[in-house]
Design a protein around this nucleic acid. Structure first.
Lengths: 251, 251
DNA sequence: TACTACGTGTGATTTATCTCACAATAATTC
DNA sequence: GAATTATTGTGAGATAAATCACACGTAGTA
């Protein structure tokens, strides 16, 4: 089939990689319990905001269900989507634990249940439990690397490369294996895709048409199915050897 | 004069902002001492490598003198400069403290003295001293924010915007106030600038010519002097209010 | 049904950026 | 200081991507 064995092996039918690579995977059972103990669940409807650009960074947000996008808007109303987060992801933006302000907004894109964490509470936990702090740093480091690799891809191979890189990452974050290939289990408009890669809706539309024509992707029920991942990898010079670590290749 | 009072106030004659915002400023005196105690100074000549893309992340590197650039190279030989670091900056790339590999290379661009730190040693320190771990996380968070804001600027306002953003950051990282404006106390070729913003040498050259023609910058002894910072700010939509925090606006 | 709102698809045109080619200046080396 | 090598500057043309303009679909709903 279009998807090779390794690719299939990398994902299960029911769960995407993000669940495998959420922060909980970086933290011991004890510390997961501790983290849970300072978390206050709260429901957020689609289109609501967890926080706004410029708000004080008082809380952290642990995504239990649903999806959240991190958006930076310019004064002229142009938006840029920096990341899309889901179950298992922790949203935290702070240069440490002093007072600071958010540099982007967090918008719920699918009804979400969020574990809200008070900065102060986390601080106490981290200070008290050295092993937790180390695990937490581990995760912070990973998040930073994801950001770096993401933006590198967006800058280096033109818009088609940027789109391809994004689709590959989406395979890892939202992908579900199906007969035809890897289905991206998320609804995104062309406009949203454009905001992720810093291009226009029209450009994205044309690029997607081309990918369809090549047989690289297909669309069913408004969801993209990646049929030939290798085509995408070529377009963004995704290295075959040494492969870049899978936990970095995500949204 | 071309540089206004606030801009002048933001820098001293002798030192650039990086010294003010190096990791030492995030860490208490005690913890600075601790960090120093596990540091082994070593000299690196210009053009030598601290580490290569793909090496194991065994050490951290604290820049005492000189300058180091972080570079990602593609298979076709295209380079991208992700960052330029100097006195007070700590180079660390690790998704935590398990075994992992560098995702880019660190190239010395000016003869440097580097405090080499063993990952294991740092780990012990952080585990033992909760306050140190918190301070360290604070710094990690800031580094991540710098990366985010940097790449956002590089993507959103075209190449002229990318160049302007970079020049502004360089004012903060390498700038020294002088009669004519802010002198960037670093030697960079057009090619290097191009590698920072993901453009071609020729484009950079033309853009610099234009900035000169406008009176925004001037060049003396191979160093750029920024005469009208406000012109640069316009080109990359650098917000006037709320101003973005100065510690994020750096290379 | 048919209306409305939102999203998609596509041509034509303009603008931004890269590519290639080569001349003109530094900067280094012998 | 002549020769060599790196860097800058610039034109002309090719490509990539944005912009503008509008037709077409589709889903929700009155």
């Amino acid at each position: 089939m279009a998807v090779n064995q390794m690719e299939l092996a990398a994902m299960t039918k029911s769960s995407s990689l993000t669940e495998k690579y959420g922060i909980c995977k970086f933290i011991s059972e004890d510390n997961n319990r501790r983290l849970n103990s300072i978390m206050y669940p709260k429901k957020f409807a689609a289109d609501s905001y967890l926080f706004w650009d410029g708000d004080e960074t008082e809380y952290l947000y642990y995504v239990l269900t649903g999806r959240v996008k991190l958006v930076k808007s310019t004064e002229e109303g142009k938006d840029m989507v920096m990341s899309i987060l889901q179950k298992g992801d922790l949203i935290m933006e702070m240069d440490g634990f002093q007072v600071s302000l958010h540099n982007f907004s967090a918008v719920v894109i699918e009804d979400a249940e969020i574990g809200v964490i008070q900065k102060k509470d986390l601080e106490l936990l981290l200070q008290r439990h050295g092993d937790f702090a180390l695990e937490f740093m581990s995760w912070m480091g990973l998040m930073h690397r994801i950001t770096q690799s993401k933006f590198r891809d967006l800058l280096m191979y033109g818009k088609p490369g940027a789109l391809s890189s994004t689709l590959i990452r989406m395979c890892n974050s939202f992908g579900v294996a199906c007969e035809a290939g890897i289905r991206l289990n998320i609804k995104l408009t062309n406009t949203e895709l454009a905001e992720i890669i810093g291009a226009t809706r029209e450009s994205v539309n044309r690029m997607l048409s081309e990918l369809k024509a090549e047989g690289t992707i297909t669309v069913k029920n408004g969801q993209i199915i990646v049929q030939r991942l290798s085509n995408l990898k070529e377009k963004c010079n995704c290295p075959t050897f040494p492969v870049c670590p899978l936990e970095i290749c995500r949204m």
